[in-house]
């Protein structure tokens, strides 16, 4: 609610500035112009949005699968932890801006390079909280399972994996925001469709309002995705919220 009010206030200031300062529409379009572009170009925006949304969704899915597999592997093997963790951190320093055009050169203008970049960017924020949650499982709980004669796998399935779920959700929420930026970046490096592609083409066509409309759609999408994940968390893991307050 407060966020909406703040947004309205900012929009009003922006509108007033754009209207009365005499600034060119192609430099800074007024919010009303952005909304008008949103309506006028709705078909164009929608068709490009579906492309970008697909890249974000699929990329996050790939990151989730690989990230969870990696976290579990590291959790089970201290040798893998020593081998993979430094590489993981190293992977985060790869300058995406440089790699993106290379990936386009290898794989063309299609979905593949976008998937790779979104997944690469989302991978780390998913692995770290998941691994952290796995590591923080109570050592006494593991001992308890051992006195019950539980195998390593049973302990993982019955105790560690459920305990790590909140970490997975946190990771997914963190990766939503970076996923949107990564998708646009990947499209800027070479693409024939998508909101990033649209932005890139709109500026030289003096359609700044349309570029702004694309940005607006992208952020609404990211916020919606985040909200959905928060909802899933609340429905699926009510215990994670309630037990946090009473933990010893």
């Amino acid at each position: 609610m407060m966020a909406v009010l703040l947004l309205l206030a900012l929009g009003a200031v922006w509108e007033a500035y754009a209207q009365f300062s005499g600034i060119e529409d192609i430099v800074l379009p007024a919010p009303s112009a952005v909304l008008a572009a949103l309506y006028d170009d709705r078909a164009l925006l929608w068709s490009n949005f579906t492309v970008t949304a697909g890249e974000i969704g699929l990329g996050m899915l790939v990151a989730l699968v690989l990230g969870l597999a990696c976290a579990v592997a590291i959790h089970f093997s201290s040798a893998l932890r020593r081998a993979l963790y430094p590489l993981l951190i190293g992977s985060q320093t790869i300058p995406i801006v440089l790699v993106a055009p290379l990936l386009v050169a290898w794989w063309g203008f299609g979905l593949m390079p976008k998937l790779a970049i979104v997944a690469l960017v989302c991978f780390f924020p998913i692995v770290v909280p998941t691994l952290d949650a796995l590591d923080r499982v109570d050592a006494d709980l593991r001992k308890l399972m051992r006195t019950f004669g539980a195998s390593r796998w049973q302990t993982f399935r019955m105790v560690e994996a459920p305990a790590a779920l909140p970490g997975v959700l946190t990771g997914a929420k963190l990766s939503v925001a970076v996923a949107a930026i990564a998708a646009v970046l990947a499209e800027l490096a070479g693409s024939d469709a998508g909101l990033g592609n649209l932005m890139l083409k709109a500026i030289p066509q003096y359609e700044t309002a349309r570029a702004f409309a694309a940005v607006l759609i992208l952020s609404v999408f990211a916020v919606t995705l985040f909200g959905l994940l928060a909802l899933v968390e609340r429905r699926l893991l009510p215990w994670a919220r309630q037990s946090r307050g009473s933990a010893p």
Partner: peptide, 25 residues
């Protein structure tokens, strides 16, 4: 079997499922 000072119940499971943990194992 060991029972500790802290109950170590699994917060995501009901009382009956917690009690049944060893049976499930």
């Amino acid at each position: 079997a060991l029972m500790a000072q802290r109950d170590l119940l699994l917060p995501w499971q009901s009382a009956v499922d917690n009690a049944a943990l060893a049976l499930r194992v």
